[in-house]
Structures are given as C-alpha cells and as structure tokens.
C-alpha cells in the first residue's frame, strides 16, 4: 500500500481544489450542477461499495438496497412528517440506524458464506426488496414514484451541489481514517488471508459484519443525499440493480481498494454516460450505450484489474525507475 502514497497525496490536492471550484464555473448551467451533484452522490455510493469490494474482498450485488432505503426514508419523512432541517437531521440518524441494522442482519446471516453465495444472496435480497417496494404502491408510489418537498435551504441547486461535494470529501476522509485504523487494517488482513487471521484469533465474522454495516450506512447516506437533491423517488430509480452495477463499474474502472478510484470512476462513468446519451440522439447505435459500458467493463476487468489508478501507478513506477537509471 505504501507505494501508493506519493501519487495519492498529489491526487487529493488536485481533487480537493477541483471539487471546490467546480460549482463556481457552473453557476448558470443548471443541468451541469445537476450532473455534478449526481456525480457526488454516486461517488459516495461507489466509495461505500469499495469498502466492501476493495478493502474487504466481499462481492455484494445487492448494495442498492441500502441506497434505496436511504432515499425512501428521506422521501417518506419529508412528505408525511415534517419538512425542516431538524427533521432532516433526524432522517439522517434514522437512515444510518436502519441501514446499519440491515447491514448487520444481512452480514449476520451471510458473512460466513463463500463469496459466490454472498453475491448470489445479496442479489436476491435486493431484488426481493425491489419487488416488495413495487407491491407496496401505497407507500412507495411504485414505478411512478412520488415527489416531496425539502427544507428551503436545500432548494437552491448550487447549495445542494456544495453540500454533495463537501459530503463526498467528508465521507472520503472518514472512510480513509477507518481503513487506516486498526479495525480497517484487520479487515484488509482478512481479505488477504482469512484463514491466517482466524488462526491468529481475530473474530473474522464480526469484522466482516462490521464492514457490511459501515458500507451499508454510507450507502444509505448516499441514498438520502440522492433524495434531497432529486426531491423525487421511485422504485426503479433507487432500488434498480443497475445502480449496484454502476457502483461496481465505477469502483472497478477507477481502481478497487483505493477510495480515490471510485471517485474518479464516478466522474468518468457519469460524464461518459451523459455524453453517450447526448450522442445517441444523432447516432442511434449509441442508444445501447450500456452495451459499450459492459464491454469496456469486461476489458478493464480482464486487462486492468487494478483500474485506472492501478494503471497510473504502474506508469509512475516505470517512469521513476527509468529516471533513476538515467545518469
């Protein structure tokens, strides 16, 4: 891990400056602010995914469950209970509690399963949740969804964009602290060699469950942020499996196990998909832009399993070695 640090520190600096200055450039273009907010939401969601995939070596195909819960808790509270900042703080607390509890429940039942079964099981759970939500039209609005008010502070798009971007930074720092903490390194150790960690006396299951819980809570927060920025939820838009796939794609493309990777992946995937959708108006084949995404994703997994960041690191090491060799 240590060899990443030099590049990462540079990356952080550029990243912070970039992120904080962006909304200024985009002040007029409402649509761009919207895309920016979306990128931030997805970056948080993808980072939460990376905590599982990259740091814990757990493959979940049902991660959207937490996202959906976060979005719907926000929507239902805002619509039916109260529209105020304190209410929103309560929503935050509620979201974190519910998603962490769900994470515990799922982890408790499945963390002892082999990776295959966990992937299968989480996929099934998330699909079931989507079906159940679809059935409960009275609460969820089904596929049509419903819109809801948010506190006036969050009605300004620029404010929302800033909140989303700052949240991304805060979550990034928190997750970074977590993965560098003794708990985080234990989780990484389990990924590397589960049998050894068990032999050393670590309660492996408890750590895995913890990873699922934290990851779930962060994903729930992303869902909540989505709700606040969109002021609209529907079952397909917050419970659809394609959201999990997006997070997976962003993590893999950016570089799993880095936390910066998913953020880069989110920026790239969102921008490229926006661009492809725009292009599709003139080039009909691009209507199937998911096809190209899928192909690109397969190529990345096959040939660049460590993602863009991994590829850059390899280049950087090559470049350094060459410079060292030169007189």
């Amino acid at each position: 891990m240590h060899r990443h640090i030099g590049l990462q520190r540079l990356g952080y600096g550029i990243f912070v400056a970039f992120v904080l200055s962006l909304p200024l450039f985009m002040h007029d273009a409402r649509n761009q602010l919207f895309i920016l907010t979306n990128i931030a939401v997805m970056a948080i969601f993808a980072m939460s995914y990376d905590l599982l995939l990259g740091y814990s070596g757990i493959i979940s195909f049902g991660h959207v469950l937490f996202f959906g819960v976060g979005a719907y808790v926000t929507a239902i509270m805002m619509k039916n209970v109260s529209v105020s900042i304190p209410a929103l703080l309560f929503v935050l607390l509620l979201t974190l509690l519910i998603t962490a509890f769900l994470g515990w429940l799922i982890g408790f039942f499945t963390a002892r399963l082999k990776s295959h079964f966990f992937a299968m099981f989480t996929l099934a759970i998330a699909e079931l949740a989507a079906v159940l939500m679809e059935k409960a039209k009275g609460i969820s609005g089904g596929s049509d969804g419903f819109s809801f008010p948010v506190p006036s502070f969050f009605r300004d798009k620029l404010t929302v964009a800033y909140v989303a971007l700052i949240s991304t930074l805060v979550i990034f720092v928190l997750l970074r602290l977590f993965v560098n903490s003794p708990m985080g390194t234990t989780i990484i150790g389990i990924r590397e060699n589960e049998a050894r960690m068990r032999a050393l006396g670590y309660p492996v299951l408890r750590y895995k469950v913890l990873a699922v819980m934290i990851s779930g809570a962060v994903a729930g927060f992303a869902g909540m942020l989505y709700g606040v920025s969109m002021r609209f939820v529907s079952v397909p838009s917050v419970f659809g499996i394609n959201l999990t796939l997006d997070a997976l794609l962003m993590t893999i493309v950016g570089g799993a196990g880095t936390l910066v990777g998913p953020v880069i992946g989110a920026v790239l995937v969102e921008l490229v998909s926006q661009w492809l959708q725009l292009m599709a108006k003139s080039v009909p084949l691009l209507e199937r832009w998911m096809l190209f995404f899928g192909l690109a994703y397969i190529l990345v997994v096959l040939f660049f399993p460590s993602g863009i960041l991994g590829g850059l690191q390899r280049l950087l090491i090559l470049w350094r070695n060459r410079r060292r060799k030169a007189p």
């Binding site: 796939l245 995404f293 994703y297 997994v301 096959l302």
Partner: peptide, 17 residues
C-alpha cells in the same frame, strides 16, 4: 473467483444489451 464473478456479470449486461 473475484474476477470470474465480475467478468460473468459484465457478460450478463452485454448479452442483455
């Protein structure tokens, strides 16, 4: 295993599209 799961999932997307 990890790569297999990720690859076959990608294939699933591509086949559907």
């Amino acid at each position: 295993h990890l790569q297999q799961i990720l690859i076959t999932l990608g294939v699933m997307i591509v086949l559907g599209e």
